[in-house]
Deep mutational scan, measured.
Amino acid sequence: MTEYKLVVVGAGGVGKSALTIQLIQNHFVDEYDPTIEDSYRKQVVIDGETCLLDILDTAGQEEYSAMRDQYMRTGEGFLCVFAINNTKSFEDIHHYREQIKRVKDSEDVPMVLVGNKCDLPSRTVDTKQAQDLARSYGIPFIETSAKTRQGVDDAFYTLVREIRKHKEKMSKDGKKKKKKSKTKCVIM
């Protein structure tokens, strides 16, 4: 069974824990209790493949930012979460993405942009803004509501699919490099 290491990042209060708990335990946590770091595991079937999701729910508070490099190193894919009623959390996505790329030393890291709290009427981040940002990053965008469960499975499952595509691409690139290195030079 394939294991996928997913990391949920975003500013404090955007609903990272609520999304994760909704996926794992099928219930909505409405009281806000700032996370330092929590880890969850769940076995699911995605596109006919049974897999184990190892999900790291991270601290959004700035005082825990020193811990970010460590979990970013171990993560295979990242859910970059903002709240649709919090423009600052949307603007912060850029910083999370840049930090992930720096730590992973790669421009090509599996990510999904997630606009959470889409059940709320007080939207300050337009869907088109988020779609445009995701398009500019070359990553999928999904709106979710941890409260109603809308888009929750889709967000995590899409990230797994992005990781699969990335692994497939990397193995193809690896095979191309191996083929090239088999060419021999004969000096007579």
Rank of each mutant, 00 (worst) to 15 (best):
S136L: 10
I21Q: 03
S136D: 15
Y4K: 15
G151W: 11
T2N: 13
L23P: 00
N116Q: 14
P121A: 09
R135P: 03
Y4V: 13
T35A: 00
D92Y: 04
K167P: 04
T127A: 05
I55S: 03
R102C: 15
G15T: 03
V44I: 15
L23I: 10
Q61N: 13
K88Y: 01
G174A: 07
R149W: 04
K178G: 08
V125M: 08
K16V: 00
S145E: 15
E37H: 04
S89D: 14
T158F: 12
G138Y: 03
E107Y: 11
G174H: 01
V44D: 07
D153H: 07
G15I: 01
K117N: 14
K180D: 04
M188Y: 14
I142N: 03
D57W: 00
S106T: 11
E49L: 03
Y96V: 15
T2I: 09
E31I: 03
Y64F: 08
Q61K: 12
G15C: 01
S145G: 15
K177V: 04
V114G: 01
G10K: 01
A146F: 00
K184E: 06
L23F: 11
E91G: 05
Y96A: 13
V9M: 11
L52F: 09
K165R: 07
D47S: 08
Y32K: 00
C185A: 09
I55M: 07
A130G: 05
I46N: 09
R41L: 03
H166Y: 06
V112I: 07
S122W: 06
A134T: 07
V109E: 02
E37T: 00
E31V: 05
H166V: 08
C185G: 11
S145A: 15
S39F: 02
D38M: 00
D47L: 05
K88G: 07
S65Q: 09
L6S: 05
S39Q: 09
P34V: 02
K175T: 06
D108P: 08
V44M: 15
Q99I: 15
H27I: 15
Q43K: 11
H94T: 13
K104V: 13
M111Y: 03
E37G: 00
L159N: 01
D57H: 00
K117L: 15
V103S: 08
D57N: 00
I187A: 15
D153F: 07
G12V: 04
I24Y: 08
K176F: 06
A130S: 07
E98T: 03
D173H: 07
